Computed example of a mutant assay.
Amino acid sequence: VPEVKTKWQNKFELIFVDEYQDTDPIQYRIVKALAESHQNLRVVGDDDQGIYGWRGADIQNILNFEKNYPNAKIISLGQNYRSTQKIVEISHALAEFNPDRRDKELFTRNFEGEKVKYLHCDNDEEEAVTIASFIQRSIDQGNWQPSDFAVLYRTNKQASAFKTALSDLGIQYHIVGNSLNVPAIGISIMTIHKSKGLEFPNVFVTGICQDLLPHY
């Protein structure tokens, strides 16, 4: 209805959208309609962090931003303030395999850090036991506390093996995002989606295999 559209256009003279890479087609149309009058739109996003395609998000919304808004000014923010140089380097190297992304220069002024370690296991149970044993040794040696570790997985189904392995060793853990009102004690285990914005000294990204994580 034109009258309704005009009412809301006049109500919002400036529109700001965060995580624009995760917008879906309907959200795109709503934002475009609201910004049509004042043409005063700000969006923030990273095409390398598009993680909600499974629920309808369209990465083309951010990739085609200049096409959809020809007068847009693009400001590239390539500096990473959280991660070590080693993590930024390997993340950038892996992201370059993605054909649907913008070319960008990523860098950090943080320290070099340790190399990212790759561990091959034959199944979920072996992976969980191996990681739990590594964490136990690190805690016993006094190097880290349980709260210094996070275990990330793609689907909630993968959590079962880790809960069993950690419980067998008597290691406390909590599931981030669990609907139960329990205190956050011990190791944090969660889906990759739940980890966004969180930081831990030691992170295990598990189940890196075909059909679980995106591959190119």
Rank of each mutant, 00 (worst) to 15 (best):
Q9M: 08
F12L: 06
F12P: 02
E13C: 07
E13Y: 06
V17T: 03
Y20F: 15
P25W: 07
I26S: 13
Q27G: 05
Q27D: 07
Y28H: 09
L34K: 03
E36T: 04
R42T: 04
V44I: 15
V44C: 12
G45R: 06
D46Q: 08
A57Y: 05
D58K: 05
I59W: 02
I59Q: 01
N61I: 00
I62E: 00
I62V: 11
F65K: 04
K67T: 09
P70I: 08
N80G: 07
S83G: 06
K86H: 12
K86M: 11
V88T: 06
L94W: 11
E96L: 15
P99F: 06
R102P: 02
D103T: 13
E105L: 14
F107L: 11
R109D: 13
F111A: 14
F111Q: 13
G113T: 07
E114Y: 10
K115F: 09
Y118S: 12
L119E: 11
D124M: 06
E126W: 02
E127C: 01
S133P: 03
F134R: 01
Q136L: 11
Q136S: 13
R137Q: 15
Q141I: 09
G142N: 12
W144Y: 15
F149Q: 00
A159S: 15
T164W: 00
A165F: 04
S167K: 15
I171G: 05
Q172P: 05
I175G: 02
V176F: 07
P183R: 08
I185M: 14
I185D: 12
G186I: 04
I187T: 03
S188T: 12
M190I: 06
I192E: 01
G197H: 08
L198K: 11
L198I: 10
V203P: 02
G207K: 04
Q210V: 13
P214N: 12
P214G: 07
